[in-house]
Amino acid sequence: MSSSCGATEPAAGRILSLITVSPAFDPHGRPRKPGALCIGAQKAGTSWLAQMLGQHPQVWIPPFKEVQFFNHRFIPGHRQWIGWHYRNKPDEIRARHKARGLPMPPELDAYLDGLTRGQMFHNHWYKRVFAPAPAQAMPMDFTPEYASLPDDGVDFVANVLPRARVIYLVRHPVDRAVSQLRMNLRREGRNPQTLADWLAEIENPVLDDRGDYAACLPRWQARFPDMLVLPFGRIARDPQAVMDAVEAHLGIGPFLYRNLREKVFATPDGPRPPHKAVAALAERLRPQIAFLEEHMGADFLAETR
């Protein structure tokens, strides 16, 4: 899943390496706002949840899953890689159809082309992203980076989407950071060799923003007090209970999900930080762990891994 690492991923089974987004597609749909957001956390199960909700006829998820609209506006440092995201995702979707021996639907091809040409990331463009959602389905934006929006960014979200139903998946701070670190090293082709190298890696502030629960949770709960906050570990232990809670929160009916206990995007083999580096990371993240215990309770914290 977009969340993997030292903690156990959703229960055993074949790893699902491709997200199943909503198959329904209305080429004549009108631009509309999403009715729900999944704001993260990164490496905390958002791809698994998208895999499940993408099957539900009352939910519609864009074919590239992560829209990256609000962070593009409020986190300038994200803009360079968001450009890469939109340059590459359409080609990935076309390649996926080809690999499966399926023709690329012309309406999907036109949709992807239209969204990635000309001016992007304005308000009407955002609504166009969700235009193909069938009339009976709730459009949903899955973008884990939204969790780290600053105060004015979350204010903007609340102004644009005042009735949005928000979901936040929380993974144990240390497990989440280790998973993100391993993903970053794999993408960058780096392999720390010494303990000193690993200790330098865990000090990288890039690991902090996506897992700064002490800042993110109160900020979002102040604007969306009914936000559904779920612990990552529950996905492995009781995925049906997770989906029951999500369905109730979104106001959608029950559904019999396929592959409920299968992994999505599990972290492949690669560099693993030594125990001493993980212990140092745990010490550095102790305030985040303490915050979760105080804010959400000891039982919730235990379920984050």
Rank of each mutant, 00 (worst) to 15 (best):
P134F: 09
I93S: 01
P274V: 07
K276F: 08
R219A: 03
L149Y: 00
M296D: 07
H85R: 04
G35R: 15
F69V: 04
F121Y: 15
R79I: 05
W60K: 09
M296K: 14
V174W: 09
G189P: 07
P162E: 11
L112A: 06
W84V: 06
E303C: 04
K276T: 11
W81R: 11
E66N: 05
M1C: 07
H124K: 13
P231R: 06
D208E: 09
P27D: 06
R117T: 13
P10Q: 11
R14G: 01
T46C: 00
I252Q: 07
P134G: 11
A177C: 10
L102E: 15
H124S: 14
K98C: 02
W220R: 06
R79P: 06
F121D: 09
I82S: 06
P144E: 02
S22G: 05
D197M: 08
A298Q: 10
R305G: 15
R128L: 04
A241P: 00
D152K: 15
R286N: 10
S3Q: 07
H97E: 05
R305A: 15
A36I: 03
D244I: 05
E9L: 14
G77C: 02
W198I: 03
D109M: 01
E92W: 06
E294T: 13
A7P: 10
N71P: 12
E66K: 05
H72N: 13
H249L: 07
F25R: 05
P205V: 03
P31R: 09
P34F: 04
L292M: 06
Q221P: 03
W60D: 08
A164Q: 08
D226C: 01
H78I: 00
Q136H: 15
A282T: 02
A44F: 00
R14T: 08
C38F: 01
Q193I: 03
Y146D: 10
K65L: 05
S4H: 14
H97T: 03
